[in-house]
Design a protein around this nucleic acid. Structure first.
Lengths: 223, 223, 223, 223
DNA sequence: TATGAATGAGCTTTCATTCAT
DNA sequence: GATGAATGAAAGCTCATTCAT
């Protein structure tokens, strides 16, 4: 795999199969020593920075190793390959993502609309963690099944949270619809967040948030 | 350009673009003959298929040429390079995209909600054109400025259409807010469309459309 | 032959052999019509310009044809290949070269030293004809046997002229030495001419000519 | 750089050179180990041979690697590119060139003419080092600015030596003329050396040396 | 005769990955 | 465990030349 193929996964060339996994378990060191852990983290940090700055395909394994101050051999003793490394970084990144949004709690002292607005602002904030890296990762959500899976898991958790937040307002709707209701809400927030954070659109960002708030408010009110 | 770098554009090397100016008009054949046109189209078709199936980086120029049944030399006499070819295909693809959605007209004989539902269905349909290719292209929207520009142009046109559709219902809102209102609507539809068309989520798709319809209906009603 | 190989001729890859010549006689048109002649000249002119500006390897056949306003097919019906074309241009160029220097005649009304100085100045002037092209050609004198042969023929003629000029002053030397005497003179003039015309050396050019004059004057006086 | 363009430098495209700055120190291996050094030398040797036999443009990187018994990857880990390699070889070659001629010392026990003859013979000998390679390099002196620069540096050193040799005989001439005097001498020797060593002219070589000696003798005597 | 579309061998260069030390 | 020299498949692209029209 010369370049991290941006692809759907339909019928691409080489899917390695299980042998790699078996081999991996034998080859890849699971660091227990202090120094090992540090090295691992150093590599991941270097990689995240480079991925963010130069893209995944634009960053070579050798470059990552050099930046991390280890040899390429060491790199490959800690990570099966570049993609595995990327997935690991992404996994960690997304965990923080969820951890953060998990804290979403309805504030009973303010109005529903204000609550929604605050939730949106909070949701937007997560993108500030490693925005460039997140954007790079997003690129692969559409192309790499494994990346998509990671994102989906996070999304599922986020949707669950949204469900629990929305449920109290759900009067007319059937409980089994909550899943789709939450998905629609999640989707709207996510896309506007991308627009605001990544896709430097010429829109007025505050106004966008206000309209999104309004739309969700009307929607939640109608449930 | 070894691989079509999927990257943010932060501080990557430097894509010239001047080559296009220097020799394109002289080197690149502009086909006027029947057979030439056919060949060009054949290459574009082959490329679109391969891009859709294997991704842009996963598809080599030689592969495209082979698939199209022409030599690599012929390939390069019709297209400056792989990226140019991709952009051309995308441009054409997105044109159909707009052409199609342009026909959106409010049907006075049915209710607002039914109208919205129909608009959504219609908007979703465009993704059936070359879904895999569209998805591949989407990947690059986040990483390539030129790709983003093409997408943005289309989006702007679509937002204009949405504006004109929504305007009659806009009573309390100021006219200058229409831009953001439409963006929020567009965003929601687009993201749910992706979920339905690309990201094989386990959701009930009909229910998603129904909820999206409901949300937009409530929103438009409140404008 | 992708690029005009700069080589000694020792044991390079492909020496085509005679078959090409036989084929050439059949394929290459010898233009007798007015229009044909014009086209030939047009191609040669375009080629000389491009060779001078961009080098031989830097100029493609297609470019020459385009510049000359003919099709590449026509190009190859007039010239066997790029190298043949180059040799033809060089031949013509060198002919003017000789024609010009042929007029060298000793002026009895001025001193020997002045005569020598004038001869040197005249010899230098020939390089002003198509200096850039000449320089390009010179490059190949060292690498291409055929080019070398053309240059050698011209040199032989020039040496003959020098011989006839020098002979009257040759008192102590044996007549059969005249060949080497003239070669040494020719050599000195040529090399200083290159230095003055092509190799923008930081030397004072008038002073160089003066010293060369002095050296040759002393030499001729001692013959 | 597809082919090492043999060209004047008038208004050619544009060789960056910055790549050397950007990543060379990081990408290019500086060999310290015994084995590394050997490999580097092996590549250089293979390259010099091939350049001499087939020219620079006639020799591909892959060919050099193959001949040196290393992979193409190894080749590119030791040398930025073909041109850099060539320049390195040339630099080394020219250093020997100067080192050798540096030893030129006037022998007080023999006559001036004998001294000159010996100097000439010695100067001629340097060309025996790697004559074919030297000739190839010479080709590029006229076309490549960097090559020219290397040659010019050597020439300047040689002219300095000639100056110091000639100075004691310089009675009538002004000291500031020494530069041009030496250049004229250097030029004559160099050009005759080329004629004798490279351009298999039909002249009697010993006689040529004798005449050159005579000319320089007369010249030096008149200074 | 003239055309110019078409060919494809061949070039330079990159980089993920291995493995002897 | 760590190293980094070595590998070589594979990519993008050029251009001299041919040949059907």
């Amino acid at each position: 795999m010369q370049s991290y193929e941006a692809t759907t996964g339909a019928d691409h060339e080489g899917s390695e199969g299980l042998s790699l996994i078996r081999g991996a378990l034998m080859r890849i060191r699971i660091p227990r020593q202090q120094r090992s852990r540090e090295r691992r983290l150093k590599i991941m940090e270097a990689a995240r920075d480079l991925f963010a700055r130069k893209g995944i395909n634009g960053t070579s394994s050798n470059e990552i190793a050099r930046q991390a101050g280890v040899s390429i051999g060491t790199f490959y003793s800690y990570f099966e390959n570049k993609k595995t490394l990327f997935l690991e970084i992404l996994r960690e990144h997304l965990e923080l993502f969820v951890t953060d949004i998990y804290s979403l709690q309805t504030d009973a002292t303010i109005s529903l609309k204000d609550n929604i607005r605050e939730h949106i602002r909070k949701a937007f904030k997560v993108f500030d963690l490693h925005p460039s890296f997140h954007k790079e990762a997003l690129v692969l959500k559409f192309s790499d099944p494994e990346v998509k899976k990671l994102f989906d898991e996070v999304e599922q958790e986020q949707i669950l949270i949204i469900s629990s937040l929305v449920e109290p307002y759900c009067h007319k709707r059937k409980p089994e619809d909550l899943q789709e209701v939450s998905k629609v809400i999640h989707s709207s927030v996510e896309n506007i967040a991308h627009a605001v954070k990544f896709l430097d659109s010429p829109m007025n960002k505050e106004r966008l948030i206000e309209e999104l708030t309004e739309m969700l408010y009307q929607y939640v009110n109608s449930l």
